[in-house]
Nucleic acid binder design. Structure first.
Lengths: 235, 235
DNA sequence: TGAATAGTGTCTTTCAGACAATATTCT
DNA sequence: AGAATATTGTCTGAAAGACACTATTCA
């Protein structure tokens, strides 16, 4: 028997019935803090609690497309997404066995402001000291294994900070070096040396000067830079 | 309705029927080259071709456990595994939609020698210049999307070479600095400076001297080191 | 003019590469 | 002794941290 004949007679029901979902960690950077957008669950289980937006993957849908659909349907956001880890512990969901592929999404603060937050279905919570907090600053946690998913996303974002251009998506298209440094400091959880940071980033070739300047700040305006474009293929 | 009542009545059939598999990239280091163990497929499709060992995930089985089972059943190997990426393109498998979670396994050359290779079901192929080759040195490729899975595994191994202790698993428990340097050079695809490599690794605190020496080499024996143990949690 | 921050220069330390000298074991 | 490789020392240049100085804008 050759491949073609075999495939014609293959029975797709003869496999273990597992569900596959995606969970998205939608991140942005505002007021000196990394923030994550959470969705108030309308369905059981954990109804009414804040959780990462997610959805089941459709049979004919790419994983990254499912992540973007979850983001659009549950938060009204359109953003690039990047896979970071698969979560598959047997008991991670009380309903049944669900393998969830974790994606992070990066959005600048202005775009994030257009998310469903005003509708009351979403809330933007800050992460400070590596810990998720309520708007009031108390530490808080998420249902299912979403705390683990969130920390893994943050760890991977930090790991790749100097290697790829993904984190630039957390800033507006044009930004000052001071803003970029504040972002790096928030992600790495440590303060950085100004001249060294400036030299390193400019000489890395990952930035291009726009010639534009900041305005309306009451002090010397900073030059604005833009991230040199590199494609963010969603997978 | 509360969570408990909801879960009691939840219907697990109401989800899209996707299959979940794991594919394992079993790596070792011999004769100055990184090598990957491939399995000769006994089933259609692609029967008779060399492919990464893999299996479907059982409903009550952890992902890492499935990867280790695939490794044991298809290659007779017991080794730590580490997840690196999920592959889920709609058309990646001709049978049906299969989401595959990629794992790499690290094994020292002596353990790899006990794999199923003599049974004829497995072959150990070298990777040189970042390219998979036959024993004769010709470049070769794998069925399905296994070429992409393999390169992603190698890229992630390289990325984390200086960050975690995973790559030490490719060497025997005790090894000389020369062997370790050869491994790093094979993974990174570039030669390294000997004194700098030596200083950096020793001062990194990731090694401990064993006091043992190499023997039977016809020249000055090197001191043997051991990787400072850090747990490899399989997930 | 003063406040506040941008951007730069300099000194020092640390680290990696280059190269070579010395040490050690086996045949 | 000679072959072959281990191990170490030194020099040099690049990069990063510390710190302070100059520049620029607005109120």
């Amino acid at each position: 028997m050759d491949d073609a004949t075999f495939l014609a007679s293959y029975d797709p029901a003869a496999f273990p019935p597992l569900a596959v979902a995606v969970d998205v960690v939608p991140l942005t950077f505002t007021n000196g803090a990394l923030c994550v957008l959470l969705n108030k669950r309308t369905e059981l289980p954990a109804r009414g609690r804040l959780a990462l937006p997610g959805t089941f993957v459709r049979a004919d849908e790419e994983l990254g497309a499912a992540a973007q659909r979850a983001l659009r349907d549950k938060a009204g956001l359109d953003a690039p997404v990047r896979q970071f880890h698969a979560f598959g512990a047997v008991a991670r969901d009380p309903r049944m066995r669900i393998i969830s592929i974790g994606y992070m999404a990066v959005v600048d603060a202005e775009v994030m402001g257009r998310a469903s937050t005003p509708l009351g279905t979403c809330e933007l919570l800050p992460i400070s000291g590596g810990i998720l907090r309520t708007a009031a600053g108390r530490r808080t946690s998420l249902p299912f294994d979403h705390d683990a998913i969130l920390s893994r996303a943050l760890a991977d974002l930090r790991r790749d900070l100097d290697r790829d251009d993904w984190a630039f998506g957390l800033l507006p298209e044009c930004f000052s070096l001071r803003e970029l440094q504040a972002l790096h400091e928030a992600i790495r959880g440590q303060t950085l040396n100004k001249p060294a940071f400036r030299k390193r980033l400019i000489e890395s070739g990952r930035l291009e000067a726009t010639g534009e300047m900041e305005t309306g700040k009451g002090f010397r305006p900073a030059e604005l830079y833009r991230a040199r474009r590199i494609d963010h293929a969603a997978d």
